[in-house]
């Protein structure tokens, strides 16, 4: 088991292994996403209050879920890198940060688009919106730090420390923002208390969440493979791989 883990940690082995996974992941992600979108956008009955604008949920909620778990994945890779110094973990971290930031941005934008027809405003300083915004800033900070540092080794360790610090802070931020919201204004809107959804509404949502995850992993692997090629460009195996193409 540990041996397998160790071998997977070598960029070269990982690259070779994922070459065969890659088309499968891509195909699966495309099928689930397209299927889920068609189901959600065409066949789900409109909400009795929100009408057709409820369909934005199927784009927005999976993005918001992934925004948070993307940070968990980044911080997880950071901990692996800090503890075991596995180079692949650093590459995974570098590959996932812009992806997580884009998904968080997508969650913010779709949230604003959904907010306009349902709440009548693009933005409210609601607790969830605010903590998602702060999450976006945390991603941007990690990216800014990486691009500002010159040495790769050093940048990787610095970003890993920052990600872990952010991970410790995220729950504190989340709870303090929740508290701030409840302290300052009565709950005029609440994202959390939707009317309990019937099966024909939440099942496509589940499909979309799975589709988003598959898409996230597919793009992450693509970026990671790219990162491996860039960083290992001076090794023999990358040269032969490139010349074989």
């Amino acid at each position: 088991m540990f041996n397998w883990f160790h071998r997977l940690g070598s960029p070269r082995t990982f690259f070779a292994m994922t070459s065969s996974w890659h088309p499968w992941l891509l195909g699966l992600a495309a099928c689930v996403l397209v299927g889920g979108s068609v189901w959600a956008l065409l066949y789900v009955p409109p909400d009795y209050q929100q009408g057709n604008s409820v369909r934005i949920m199927y784009i927005h909620v999976p993005a918001a879920i992934l925004a948070q778990s993307g940070y968990m994945m980044m911080a997880g890779a950071a901990i692996v890198y800090l503890v075991w110094r596995i180079k692949l973990a650093d590459m995974a971290m570098a590959a996932v940060a812009p992806l997580g930031a884009s998904i968080t941005f997508l969650a913010l934008v779709t949230g604003a688009i959904w907010g306009k027809p349902t709440w009548g405003t693009w933005w409210v300083w609601d607790a969830r919106l605010t903590s998602t915004l702060v999450l976006f800033f945390l991603y941007v900070g990690v990216m800014a730090l990486r691009s500002a540092m010159e040495g790769r080794e050093q940048a990787g360790r610095a970003c890993a420390i920052l990600s872990v610090v952010g991970l410790v802070n995220l729950p504190i931020i989340k709870y303090s923002v929740d508290w701030w919201y409840t302290l300052h204004q009565p709950a005029s809107f609440k994202l959390t208390e939707k009317p309990a959804m019937p099966v024909e509404m939440w099942l496509p949502l589940l499909v979309m969440v799975i589709g988003y995850y598959l898409f996230f992993f597919t793009v992450w692997f693509m970026r990671l493979r790219n990162e491996i090629l860039v960083r290992e460009q001076h090794t023999d195996w990358v040269r032969t791989w490139v010349s074989d193409r």
Partner: peptide
């Protein structure tokens, strides 16, 4: 860069102190 990295981490403190 320090301000970009650290200001988001100050959010809880800001909220609690002003409250």
């Amino acid at each position: 860069l320090v301000t970009i990295l650290i200001l988001p981490l100050y959010v809880p403190v800001l909220i609690l102190a002003t409250a």
